[in-house]
Design a protein around this nucleic acid. Structure first.
Length: 852
DNA sequence: GATATGTCGCTTTTT
DNA sequence: GCGACATATC
């Protein structure tokens, strides 16, 4: 009770004395962070509600828990490791635990640190806690992803690592561009030493919380002996750009906590309880960060499943979960083993696969269910047939015409692939049969060129030190500024020790630029100044809370809102005009996207807030319109569940991925196996695994071997299903291939023969003995004979005559107007007249064969 | 400096 | 079989 009184008092204090920037003052900083201005009333109301709840706490949320879950929820103090198998209700337990902490008065909402890996998980947790408590939990500012929590902390203490609190968060693209510059400056061949690779190395160092000074000599000498050196230079550049990358968010906070014990102690005291979701996915930096924060009271509850650790390639350490008990002696370990999601066969099949892994903490999943279909296994001739078959299955199940099975909504069905390039086959097929689908994790809205360009403008306006953004916009739209002019500006900036915007100013003033370049840059600078003056810096970083990142700022009526500002930036810069004048068929779509971007701004108070959101939340759960089949990667599917799941492409090299095995050997293979486990356990009622004998890889036909994971499935839980509803499509396939082949490359293409290796594996999988397989084999042979070898020569197909309708990938459809040798003059329907080499276009009727 | 064509390398997985 | 980047040509 005394504590509660204190809480209320300090809360009141926080309202009277705003927190100073970047300082820690326990009495007010956290309060301000968690419960500033507008929340005061609801916060106080909640305090009251809880106090009354203390009299007769409503703990009905405990009633629906099973004994293990209940134990995990009620063991509030001290370290707890919750080993939660797939579908065992771990989110339920986790949220009940938060509710319990609040309900028993152990902590106030803003004293609980709860971290997840994805924004989705964070959102779900927030929603479910709210549902349990019967009202919105407004004061849980520290429930979020590792990254978003760290951004909040880092904004407050930025100066401790020589940053300003309005630092920019760079995405991978910016990171790569920056590294490229450094590699070029170091005078080594960027071809042989690609920036991507360096980025990967730096990432892995950061994941292990290694600053340049801590990288071992051996590792640092990688990358042509320059690894650490470039890393150090990169960090220096980030500092001058006032920017951080993703890894820095964690690493800087670890550094700060390690260096400033007093600050750490204050945070240790503040975060009374710590909860961690998906603990098996934590990397070393995250682990250290958690260990530092939990170091005082050790009230840390980690939830995870070692069998679902699938992010080793990103630096996740399964070891973290395996040694939890050593890190936190006396830890209580609770196993959640009752599965509420899948039918017995699905569960058994998944267990039989994962049993192949060593070093497991070991869990025995069980279910009270008794009914259910076996896992289905289907072999196909090639990837396109696989897609066709899946499409037909989905249609049948959607129509409710599958024997023994109920009718399913398209939303109930998902296709989970190993690698995103597998998605195309399904997309193509579904488009041609008009089966609605949604792709999760595809190219994202915010990664589109026009969106990144627009955001680069916003970035420069918000944070003028952001040279990368400036480089992006300086000649977009064209202002007559080429490489030469940009170089002059860079030199001017460097020799004066200023950012590129200022460098450009100097270059204009000193007459370094001439003609078009000069006037173009001068105009841009004038525009930037005007926009900047209109952009009120409404954020006071360091005093923010989860909902309102913004201090109340008295608006000058002369000032304009950020939405209007954004529109003006895009118009006045000429960026909108640029796309309006663009004749490419995709230009209208890009303008649409820009409109959407401006619309998205409505949800934010200002440009800076928007930029931060975009940097951290690369969500794209748009398109909730109507039923759709979901297509996504296995990684993306973790944490989700679907009544019907298709797992295509179970072939050696693809799944398990060759690369994974080459790079990480047995460890890599085991991670792939866990991925298989994750995939199977996503299914509630029906799980269908498939593989193809042939697949096109890099445009080359390759024969495939059925995956070793197929051998590992327990036979008694699997039905070998014959592909059905096929036949008579040889002509279509040949035509399809010709359509592709007539494209740009057009070299010769030979269809592989049916591989005997495949047959051997198939025999093991018992496919070979099934009537379905025999039929398929026959059919395959029928199809195979007219098909390969097909030799296509681009030149041969390029005999056009005047008046022919043709198709070009970029320019769309058009008509041949003139022919000079192998050059055609084509009048495109939407892109004007162009002169092109014949090999670049295909007859319009052939193009019709190719979806899009 | 901008455009059209050629070349290379590549595909896991993402906060 | 695609896109990023380099080169050639205007």
């Amino acid at each position: 009770m005394r504590e509660q009184l204190q809480n209320v008092l300090s809360l009141a204090a926080s309202l009277l004395y705003p927190a100073p920037m970047s300082s820690f003052n326990e009495d007010d900083a956290f309060e301000a962070a968690a419960a500033p201005q507008s929340l005061s009333l609801s916060q106080l109301a909640m305090q009251g509600a809880r106090e009354s709840a203390l009299g007769a706490p409503d703990t009905s949320y405990l009633d629906s828990l099973n004994p293990a879950q209940r134990e995990a929820v009620e063991t509030l103090d001290g370290p707890v490791l919750m080993l939660a198998g797939a579908g065992t209700g771990k989110t339920k337990a986790l949220t009940a635990r938060i509710a319990h902490l609040l309900n028993t008065g152990r902590a106030r909402p803003n004293e609980i640190l709860a971290v997840t890996f994805t924004n989705k998980a964070a959102r779900e947790m927030k929603d479910r806690v709210a549902a349990l408590m019967g009202h919105q939990i407004e004061g849980m500012p520290w429930l979020g992803t590792f990254h978003s929590v760290c951004v909040k902390l880092l904004r407050r203490h930025a100066e401790l690592v020589d940053l300003k609190s309005n630092f920019t968060i760079l995405d991978t693209d910016d990171q790569i561009r920056l590294l490229k510059q450094l590699i070029n400056a170091a005078g080594i061949d960027e071809k042989r030493w690609p920036a991507r690779q360096l980025a990967g190395m730096i990432d892995s160092w950061k994941n292990r919380a290694l600053t340049p000074g801590h990288v071992s000599a051996g590792e640092g000498a990688e990358f042509n002996g320059l690894g650490v050196k470039l890393y150090a230079q990169y960090q220096e550049r980030l500092k001058t750009l006032n920017a951080v990358d993703f890894g820095d968010l964690l690493l800087h906070m670890v550094t700060i906590f390690q260096k400033h014990g007093d600050l750490l102690e204050q945070y240790q005291r503040w975060f009374k309880y710590i909860l961690v979701d998906e603990y098996q996915d934590t990397n070393v930096a995250q682990y250290l960060w958690l260990r530092l924060l939990a170091g005082g009271h050790k009230n840390i509850c980690c939830v995870g499943d070692d069998d679902q650790s699938i992010y080793g390639w990103r630096g996740a350490e399964v070891g973290n979960i395996l040694r939890f008990e050593r890190d936190f002696p006396g830890a209580k370990v609770v196993r959640l083993e009752q599965n509420y999601r899948s039918t017995p066969h699905i569960l058994a099949a998944a267990s039989s696969v994962i049993a192949g892994n060593k070093d497991r903490l070991g869990k025995d999943l069980w279910t009270a269910e008794t009914e259910g279909e076996k896992v289905r296994l289907v072999g196909h001739w090639d990837g396109e047939e696989e897609a066709r078959w899946v499409g037909e299955e989905i249609e049948a199940m959607h129509g409710g015409t599958r024997a023994r099975l109920r009718q399913y909504s398209l939303d109930d069905m998902a296709i989970l692939v190993r690698a995103s390039h597998q998605m195309r086959a399904f997309e193509d097929r579904f488009l041609s049969i008009s089966l609605p689908y949604r792709v999760i994790g595809g190219p994202r809205f915010y990664e589109r060129m026009e969106i990144r360009d627009a955001m680069a403008y916003f970035r420069v306006v918000c944070q003028p030190d952001d040279d990368l953004a400036f480089e992006r916009i300086i000649n977009t739209p064209k202002r007559g500024v080429g490489d030469k002019a940009l170089q002059d500006i860079q030199v001017a900036a460097r020799s004066n020790g200023v950012n590129l915007v200022e460098g450009a100013r100097i270059a204009v003033a000193d007459g370094l630029l001439k003609g078009k370049a000069k006037s173009g840059v001068a105009q841009l600078l004038a525009d930037l100044d005007r926009w900047t003056s209109l952009n009120v810096q409404q954020i006071r970083y360091g005093v923010e809370d989860e909902d309102a990142l913004v201090e109340d700022v008295a608006y000058d009526p002369a000032e304009i809102g950020h939405i209007e500002l954004a529109e003006r930036i895009l118009d006045e810069s000429g960026y909108t005009t640029m796309w309006q004048n663009d004749k490419n068929p995709e230009a209208p779509g890009r303008l649409e996207n820009l409109k959407e971007l401006v619309k998205a701004l409505e949800q934010f108070e200002n440009l800076a807030g928007f930029l931060e959101h975009v940097a951290l939340i690369m969500d794209n759960d748009s398109g909730n319109d109507g039923e759709k089949v979901t297509i996504m990667t296995l990684h993306g599917a973790k944490g989700l569940e679907f009544p019907v799941v298709f797992l295509p492409g179970w072939e050696e090299g693809l799944f398990p991925s060759q690369r994974s095995m080459d790079e990480s050997g047995v460890k890599g293979l085991e991670e792939e196996r866990r991925l298989a486990y994750v995939g199977i356990t996503r299914a509630e009622e029906l799980c269908t695994i498939s593989f193809a004998a042939n697949r096109r890889v890099y445009g080359q036909w390759q024969s495939q071997l059925a995956s070793r994971f197929i051998d590992e499935l327990s036979p008694e839980d699997v039905d070998v299903t014959a592909p059905s509803g096929l036949g008579g499509q040889a002509g279509h396939m040949a035509g399809h291939m010709a359509g592709h082949g007539a494209g740009r490359y057009g070299g010769s293409m030979t269809m592989a023969e049916s591989p005997s290796t495949f047959e051997r594996r198939a025999a093991k999988a018992d496919v070979y003995n099934s009537p379905g397989w025999k039929r398929m084999q026959e059919r395959a042979q029928r199809n195979a004979s007219p098909k390969p070898p097909i030799t296509i020569n681009a030149k041969a197909t390029s005999s056009f005559t005047i008046g022919d309708r043709v198709f070009h990938k970029k320019f769309g459809y058009g008509e041949v107007m003139e022919i000079e040798g192998d050059k055609l003059s084509i009048e495109f329907d939407h892109s004007g007249t162009k002169k092109l080499v014949a090999g670049f276009v295909m007859p319009a009727d052939q193009a019709g064969d190719v979806p899009f």
